[in-house]
Amino acid sequence: MNHWFWFSASDFAFSFLSVLFEGIPFILIGVLLSGLVDVFLPPRLLARVLPRNPVAGILIGGLLGAVLPMCECGIVVVIRRLIRKGLPLSNAVAYMLAAPVVNPVVAVSTYAAFRGQGPMEIMFWRMGLAFGVAVIVSAIVLALGRAFVLRPDLQTADAHDHGNEHRSAADKAAAAVRSSVGDFLDVTVYFLLGAAVATLFNTSVNQQLVLPLAEDRGMAVASMMVLAGILSLCSTSDAFVAATFTAFPAAAKLAFLVFGPMMDLKLLFIYSLVFRKRFVVALAVGLFVLVWLACTQLPIANFRG
C-alpha cells in the first residue's frame, strides 16, 4: 500500500469516541480535584509549605507525581488552579511535565510492556529522562518569567480567599461545583479539538510510512517523537504501543515514551488553557529538541532480557 492518506468518516468517529471515553473520566477527576482546591485550599498555604529555594521547588515539583499521580489530560486543569492559588510557575511546570511519567502506575505499565526488552532499564531511563527534561524546562520557565509564559488572566495569583472564609459550608460546596463545571467545560472543549486532530492523523495517515526511518538513529528518534505527538496516547498505556516497534532502537522508543506524555496534538490545545500561544509553540519545539538530544547523545543501549 503506497497511499499516505485515506479518510473514512466511520473510522474517524469510532476512534474519536474511544479517545473521548478513555480521557473524559480522567478529566473529570482532574476538574473535581481542581474545584476542591479552588474553594478549600487556603491561598498562600502553598507558598508557606513549599521551599523558598526555586531549584528545590522545581525538584519537588518534578517528583510530586510519585505521590500525586495524574495523567496528562487531567493535570493541566489542576496546575491552572494551583498557579492561581500561588504555586510558583516553575514548580507547576515541573509537576505538569513530569507527573504523567514519573508516577508508580506508569512505572509498572512500562515494566510490563517491555518484558524481554530490558524492562528495568527502560523504566528507569524513562523516569530519569522525563524528570531531567521537566527540571531543565522548568528552570528555563523560571528564567523566562510569568509574563512570557502565562495567559494574561493567570499572571496574578489570587491574593486573598475570594471570601471563602465568609461562606457557609453549602456556599462553599456550591462554589466548588461551579468551579469544577467551569473547568470541565473549558478543558473538554480543548480536549475535543485535540482529540479530533489526533484521530484524523491516527486513522487516516498510513503509519507504515515511518518504518523505513528506523535505520538511522537520529531519524528513528525524531520519527518516533512525531508519531507519539500524533497518536496522543495516554501515558499509562503508551508503553505497550512503543514496545511493538521492535525495528526501532531503544533510544527511539524512549523518545516516544518521554516526549508523548509531555507534548502531543491534544495537549497543544489543552496547554492553551494555561499558557500563551507563543509559549506553547516554544515548549513544543524546546521539548522536541531536548528529548531528541537526550535520546541521540546519551549511551542508551538496545536492552534485552
Binding site: M1, F14, L185, V189, T203, Q207
Partner: peptide
C-alpha cells in the same frame, strides 16, 4: 464543540473499523 461532534460521532460510529483504518 461540546455537543455536536460527540453526538454526530455517536450516530456515525459503526462500532468497528473499516478498510481505511486497517490499511493505514
Amino acid at each position: 464543540v461540546l455537543l455536536v461532534p460527540v453526538t454526530a460521532a455517536t450516530i456515525v460510529s459503526p462500532g468497528q473499523f473499516g478498510e481505511a483504518a486497517v490499511m493505514n
